[in-house]
Design a protein around this nucleic acid. Sequence first.
DNA 1: CGCCAGGACGCCC
DNA 2: GGGCGTCATGGC
Length: 273
Amino acid sequence: MDYQVKSNDITVSEKDFDLDETLDCGQAFRWKKIISEYPCTYEGKFLNTALKISQTKKGEFIFHDTTEKNFLDIWYNYFDFGTDYSELKRQFSEDETLAKACNFAGGIRLLRQDSWECLISFIISQNNNIPRIKGIIDRLCEHYNGIFPSAEQLSHESPESLSYLRSGFRAKYICDASKKTADGTVNLTEISKMPLDDARIALKQISGVGAKVSECVLLFGMHRTEAFPVDVWIKRVLEKYYPNGFPEYAKKNAGIAQQYLFHYIRNLSVQSE
DNA sequence: CGCCAGGACGCCC
DNA sequence: GGGCGTCATGGC
């Protein structure tokens, strides 16, 4: 990754990065595409810091109105620019299926998101579709002046008071997660450092958090790259291409491999429809 | 109108 | 301990 400071913007050159593939692949739900054609542009936030980012062509980006300090302190980490994705994809590509998946959507990067926001977001994601997930999270943040509410703030709510979200049966899960996080029953900072199996058990104390949601929180919200969310799509991948198990050499970064595979299999399915 | 959506839970045997 | 109906809501 190379970057340059240009008046109020930061320009970035990074070939293993694509805005659509990274911001609209179902790992994050608060990025909004405001311009579709090149330079395609997204707006979003990480915690309390807003960003407008454009992709001018393949591998070229503009971080608008961003100071060098903000870029290095926040966005460098958020977009995981410290990780060499070329090297990861090289390792993955020993395997034929993974090679195809990396080739198909090689611009995906694993965002380093906030664990609390991920916990609530993936509770909302269960048995739900992406447009509606985004809508519910939009209404939630809108209610708190555009900022994702804290566990403390949400701990005072009830399923009834959250009816404006229209989140259905998930409202009671949001409340349980908020109360347990606010009162320390669940400590996300500690969980993020636990051995993986202990972390899974700790997250599943929350009502509405099962195998899939806890795995997503570990991967997307705690950057535990060995976490491996299995949904119906990945289940199909495992049955079809890995009947004898996932390749050992990819397990340390299985969650990142999972992202490429998810995109790949879904696209195959769309083509055959 | 019915089907499904990046699931989890409760109850069944 | 696996199998299955149910849970709200809305996009299609």
